[in-house]
Design a protein around this nucleic acid. Sequence first.
DNA 1: CGGGAACTTGACGCTTGTCAAGACGTGTGG
DNA 2: CCACACGTCTTGACAAGCGTCAAGTTCCCG
Lengths: 256, 256
Amino acid sequence: MDFQGSQIANGPPAEPSWGSSRRPSTCDGCPVARFCLPSWPHEGEGLERLHIGRRRLRQGQAIYREGDRFQFVYAVRHGIFKSTVSKNDGRDQVVAFHLPGERFGFDGLADGRHPTTATAIEDAEACAISYSELNEAIGQHHAMRHQIPAMITTEFLRERRLASLMAKTPSDQRVATFLLNLAGRLHERGYAAQDVQLRMTQEDIGSYLGTTLETVSRCLSSFARQGYVAVHRRRIVIVDPAGLRARFGIGSAGLA
Amino acid sequence: MDFQGSQIANGPPAEPSWGSSRRPSTCDGCPVARFCLPSWPHEGEGLERLHIGRRRLRQGQAIYREGDRFQFVYAVRHGIFKSTVSKNDGRDQVVAFHLPGERFGFDGLADGRHPTTATAIEDAEACAISYSELNEAIGQHHAMRHQIPAMITTEFLRERRLASLMAKTPSDQRVATFLLNLAGRLHERGYAAQDVQLRMTQEDIGSYLGTTLETVSRCLSSFARQGYVAVHRRRIVIVDPAGLRARFGIGSAGLA
DNA sequence: CGGGAACTTGACGCTTGTCAAGACGTGTGG
DNA sequence: CCACACGTCTTGACAAGCGTCAAGTTCCCG
């Protein structure tokens, strides 16, 4: 059973029927709208006038690059994106993964330029929302005055947890936390909770977790030997999530 | 020469005379207003109606704690604050230091509760700004629709740089980056660029950098042996900032 | 079927965390 | 005013975790 199969067997529920078309029309029928939209005002807020562009990207293509002018914020429609910064030794450092329904690109707000490069790690699609239009909506719709800052903060707190995770934490615990968190986020999105298909390379994971691909590989092998998981290339079945959690003292809140 | 002395000799310039009292009256005569206020609208935006409370704290006192309801955002008037999260092993992890003129507390926006504890690491004073009032101002004043999100983003990007710094970076480079960045931030605020008085313990620094106090101490000793700095207890004179920067390939942008 | 990317596994050595002892400065109480 | 205690920092020795290098395997895609 590959990822496609898994998606069909245990994929996102059928799209809810929104009834009206109060939302941007592009969002009707979007399978992840319930993750992307909930923090937005729903009813008659005029949000349907927002222009939402679709961006289709092939594996490895960047949606914006470090230094690009900030114009849009993005929401993942399908596929997975990574945000990277190039370090002074020339190599890229992964600072975040973006799953379907998650938003990214806010980092450009600080000074009008993106400090990161956002790349599709597989064929993917994202919605581009003009920030200036979104900004106008803030003035017109009371509810959004709080929603936008909350949205930004939510996305950034994910990174603070990463920074906190990497401080003085053994690498096996980092990998375990990463794995359980990824499974949790995918589960929220309707995928099997214990059946994770990694879409990123171990090099990306290592970069994200501040370690090397060899260490990631060794940790996964070790988890498999101890019976916590079963690994078949990029497909990972978490046989004993509770045990893994207990082994490393990981609460259900983890890295996001 | 202690920190007080240094402050007098090379302290913040005399307070600018703002002329009008368009700003919140509390901000008149605030020595760090030019760092705290610039991203706010200045002229006739009605901001003078904001209620800004002063909070005086003694060393070690917390201004808010993990789990507290989010009501205010804060600006440092003087002194230094740290933000910490308690890890599952019971120990605290420092996630940020807040210098005079910097703002903190936005992390409560995501879900209405602060995920961190903010503590004064020395006798300090902060301004508390009601978030709901600030939020109202967004609706009324066009310029602020962008300023608030930009402010939030700026403060959070500082943490991303930390996360990025800690990934696969040797500890001496972390300490060097921390030192140069702290010196830079203090310099912007009118203090001597090469004369840093650490207000935090080495344990705090170690926690912040994901290492131990012993390693921090060893790095500082090593820098001193190599002639980059001169260390007298908590006072650090950066004798050769360019050399230190070059030694570790640190650009002028660093950890914030 | 061939080539390359991604992954696995082993061996070795350095970095750094841990434990421990001692020095220094500061505050407190007799 | 001195003595003591405590917090903070320094330094050393040792061990372990993990990064690096290297060789080999599997899988995917052309």
